[in-house]
């Protein structure tokens, strides 16, 4: 399925349009009817070739659901996903094999995501066989090359996952994701399960592989330090919607949405001892989200307009920085005033 280019520059490798994933919950619970969790509710996203897009948000914001939809593992309620010219939603999602050659995933937990009964060679050769590579010599070559690329030795292919350290296991997870030469890799918290002294090794490796293999990344993480380091653009999600997106420098130096501002100020830094930013309350119940802006109940800038429907639109500025907040301009003016 070829998607005709709608705008100049077909450097967009992935485009997500008005994607929604709703889950029905219960049904008959205490005599009540079905309820809907709108895990992803109208997300527009573009990933350019060679780009790393950071996807940030707290648990329950829908970032993992979005990732699983892009992988074709969840069927969206509405919207469309176009991957490298191929529409993967709307009835054609059956071709998992084609999709698997385009987009792959690196999982958070390298202990849970590798089969403990399979050698590394088996883990890497199964996808090749499924995709029609059957010659022993070619399989051996590709496994050896892949292992070297992720910093392991080809002779380690005969070993089992438990014989490796956490960092080495994540290298195996990366090798598995890359063995079919995908164009896009979704990295879901790739270092958060690793020891602090090992994280830098894996972050450096991921960035090197992106350059040498010309990959595009979607980097799902709650660790803003890692996201800032790796991303070209960043999208911030809150309760199923993107609330802010833009160039990494814009997001981290001039965050415009109060939620992004809070997230950044809540990160403790070893060299700066400033009080951590706090909000009142917690993530609202996704079964019963607020009428207006989803962040309004926790926002210190919330006014009457924020608390009633409709949901504020995602307004894009000329520089591409987009914000979903009625009061973004007023807040920016206040911040500018306070800093002079």
């Amino acid at each position: 399925m070829h998607e005709p280019a709608k705008r100049p520059g077909d450097d967009v490798i992935l485009s997500v349009k008005d994607l929604a994933v709703h889950f029905p919950i219960g049904g008959g619970w205490l005599g009540g009817g079905h309820q809907l969790v709108r895990a992803v509710d109208g997300v527009d996203l573009e990933l350019k070739r060679g780009e790393c897009l950071g996807l940030v948000g707290e648990s329950g914001c829908g970032k993992s659901t979005l990732a699983l939809s892009i992988l074709g593992l969840l069927v969206p309620t509405r919207g469309r996903i176009v991957l490298d010219g191929q529409v993967v939603t709307g009835g054609q999602s059956g071709d998992r094999k084609t999709l698997a050659r385009t987009v792959q995933m690196v999982f958070q937990d390298p202990y849970a995501s590798l089969n403990p009964r399979q050698t590394v060679r088996r883990t890497l050769e199964d996808p090749l066989r499924l995709h029609g590579v059957t010659a022993r010599s070619e399989i051996d070559d590709r496994v050896a090359v892949m292992l070297k690329q992720v910093g392991l030795r080809p002779e380690q292919a005969g070993r089992y996952p438990h014989e490796f350290s956490g960092g080495q296991r994540q290298r195996i997870g990366i090798a598995r994701a890359l063995i079919l030469n995908p164009r896009i890799v979704i990295c879901d918290e790739p270092v958060s399960a690793l020891d602090v002294s090992i994280r830098a090794q894996i972050i450096n490796l991921l960035l090197e592989l992106k350059e040498t293999l010309g990959l595009s990344y979607i980097m799902v993480s709650h660790d803003l330090g890692v996201v800032e380091h790796m991303s070209d653009r960043v999208a911030v999600m809150y309760l199923g919607r993107i609330v802010e997106t833009g160039d990494w420098r814009e997001i981290f130096e001039r965050p415009a949405h109060p939620y992004t501002q809070t997230l950044i100020a809540a990160i403790p830094d070893p060299l700066r001892h400033t009080p951590l930013a706090t909000t009142k309350g917690e993530l609202p119940n996704p079964l019963n989200p607020p009428d207006g802006c989803a962040f309004a109940p926790r926002c210190r800038h919330a006014a009457a307009v924020c608390q009633r429907a409709p949901v504020p639109p995602l307004e894009t500025r000329p520089d591409g920085h987009a914000v979903r907040c009625w009061r973004a301009d007023e807040i920016a003016a206040q911040t500018a005033l306070a800093s002079t």
């Binding site: 994280r199 830098a200 130096e253």
Partner: peptide, 11 residues
Amino acid sequence: VDSLPRLGSRA
């Protein structure tokens, strides 16, 4: 400390 991607260091 040096191995951490600290917020603000890339900018």
